[in-house]
C-alpha cells in the first residue's frame, strides 16, 4: 500500500461531482484551479473522467435523484481514491435542512475522507483542507 498512497499524495487528480449544490461551491472549486492559486504546484489536475480520478470533490445536498448516480461515480473511480466533501450542504444540509427531497447526507451514501465546511468555503480553505488530507495520507503510507 505504501508506495501507492505516497504517489497518490504527489499527484492527486480530482474529479468534480456536484450532487445538487447551489453552484457556488462549484465556482469556488474552479477558483482553486485558476492561475492565482495554481494547484498544479501540488500535481493536482482536474480530470474529465471519474476513471482517471484519485479524489472526488463532492459538493451539494445529495438529492434523491443524485444518490444512485453518486454511488455509481464513486464505484467508477479506481481505488485507492479519496472523497472530499466541500461545503456546508455536503456536510449536513446547511440552509436546505429539512427538505423532503434530500433524505441523506453525502457521507451516508459514500465514504467521505475529509470535510471542508463553509458556505461556500474560500479557495484558501479548500486548499488548506486538501493539504491536510494529503498530510494525513502521507502518514498512513
Amino acid at each position: 500500500m505504501g508506495i501507492k498512497l505516497k504517489a497518490l499524495t504527489k499527484s492527486p487528480w480530482v474529479y468534480h461531482l456536484s450532487t445538487g449544490s447551489c453552484n457556488n461551491c462549484d465556482i469556488e472549486i474552479l477558483d482553486c484551479l485558476t492561475p492565482r492559486y495554481d494547484l498544479e504546484r501540488f500535481g493536482i489536475v482536474l480530470v474529465g473522467s471519474p476513471r482517471h480520478a484519485d479524489a472526488l470533490l463532492v459538493t451539494g445536498n445529495m438529492t434523491m435523484k443524485c444518490i444512485p448516480r453518486a454511488k455509481e461515480v464513486y464505484e467508477q473511480m479506481p481505488k485507492p481514491g479519496v472523497v472530499i466533501a466541500i461545503g456546508t450542504c455536503a456536510l449536513g444540509h446547511g440552509v436546505f435542512d429539512g427538505s423532503y427531497v434530500m433524505p441523506k447526507t453525502v457521507d451516508e451514501v459514500i465514504p467521505v475522507d475529509i470535510y471542508i465546511p463553509g458556505c461556500p468555503p474560500k479557495p484558501e480553505g479548500i486548499i488548506a483542507g486538501v493539504a491536510k488530507l494529503l498530510a494525513m495520507l502521507k502518514q498512513k503510507a
Binding site: A7, D38, E40, G43, P78
Partner: peptide, 18 residues
C-alpha cells in the same frame, strides 16, 4: 509556478498503482 520536476514520474507511478 507549475509542477515540480518529478511530476510526470509521480503521475506515472501513481497510475501504475491504481
Amino acid at each position: 509556478v507549475g509542477p515540480p520536476l518529478f511530476q510526470p514520474l509521480y503521475d506515472f507511478v501513481k497510475l501504475l498503482g491504481k
